[in-house]
């Protein structure tokens, strides 16, 4: 533990999936190392901002809920993203705003009420030793997390936080428009890719005009969508690099939107790529939820992304 960090929480119950995430692991994708980072960039960024942290601080991504933490010191936190029925000493915790937690208080994540992934950011951010430039936890690769080896949280673990060096916590709440109701049907913006012309006309019409259902085969690698099978004249290609949000269509015609922990290369034809904010939005959808795909332009996607990022002062 470095001098400027301290134990912030003790894990009373680890729950199914809670992962440390900074912005992600960059510059090593050519070695087959995945990107990692928060599946919902939007919720993660807000949790950090509300806790007074700079862009890129490490927060805990809690999927489904089930996590119970006990504070080992007084610490300001913010929880944003999904509403997983979080309580502080059995009182509902207000989301999307900073909250002071006192030593000994119990923070308990319940189960999904609205959305799938909640982000817990302590002021100063969680502290762990970076591995290949990042603390983002990728269990499959054995990289990152609190122990550096991609291990899941275990009961009794002690989670370290950095001593607060960021700016003072000032914002009292995230504006209403940023608190997304993830239960609403989502329209996901997609930048068409080069193979779009290899899909049949009927398939392209279906892709952008029919409703897609989020399948239960969904994780941080990718989210499968079920609906009308899409036909592509190309069934497999020589493997090539694939970006965040790429929507690949394997021979069964059911698209898979690839998220942060995707493999670095792949060989299925792609409709295109979701914008970063649409990939984030999809990561909050529960299985069975309906989504639509909507083609967008690079100009619009860039404007939306830059507007989002600039609101975090980076």
């Amino acid at each position: 533990m470095k001098e400027t960090s301290r134990v912030g929480f003790r894990v009373e119950r680890a729950g199914p999936l809670a992962l440390l995430q900074d912005a992600g692991r960059f510059g090593v994708r050519r070695l087959g190392v995945t990107q990692g980072g928060p599946a919902d960039l939007h919720g993660w960024a807000w949790a950090n901002r509300l806790a007074g942290n700079p862009w890129g601080a490490a927060a805990l991504e809690v999927t489904f809920g089930g996590l119970t933490l006990v504070a080992e010191c007084d610490v300001t936190i913010a929880v944003a993203g999904a509403d997983l029925g979080v309580t502080l000493d059995d009182t509902p915790l207000p989301l999307w705003q900073p909250v002071v937690v006192r030593e000994g208080q119990t923070l308990r994540f319940g189960s999904p009420v609205n959305g799938l992934r909640a982000y817990l950011a302590p002021a100063g951010g969680f502290y762990a030793e970076p591995v290949l430039g990042s603390v983002s936890c990728v269990a499959r690769e054995g990289l990152g997390g609190f122990d550096g080896h991609g291990s899941k949280l275990a009961d009794g673990d002690r989670l370290t936080v950095s001593e607060k060096v960021g700016q003072a916590v000032e914002q009292t709440q995230a504006p209403e428009r940023e608190r997304i109701d993830y239960r609403e049907p989502a329209t996901l913006a997609l930048l068409p890719g080069a193979q779009v012309r290899d899909f049949t006309g009927a398939s392209l019409y279906a892709a952008f005009n029919q409703t897609w259902r989020v399948d239960d085969r969904a994780d941080r690698m990718g989210v499968r969508l079920t609906g009308p099978p899409l036909a592509c004249r190309v069934t497999s290609m020589i493997s090539e690099g694939i970006g965040l949000g790429a929507v690949q269509v394997p021979p069964d015609g059911q698209p898979i939107a690839l998220l942060n922990d995707r493999q670095t290369i792949g060989g299925y034809p792609r409709l295109g790529a979701l914008t970063p904010l649409s990939a984030a939005r999809l990561a909050q959808c529960l299985p069975g939820q309906e989504v639509r795909l909507s083609a967008t332009s690079t100009e619009n996607a860039l404007m939306a992304y830059r507007h989002f990022r600039c609101s975090f002062g980076t």
């Binding site: 994708r29 090539e240 690099g241 290369i265 830059r306």
Partner: peptide, 16 residues
Amino acid sequence: DLVPSYTTLLVVFDPM
């Protein structure tokens, strides 16, 4: 990031 593969190079840049 740069991701070379058999016939391609994926070039990833910071859109900011």
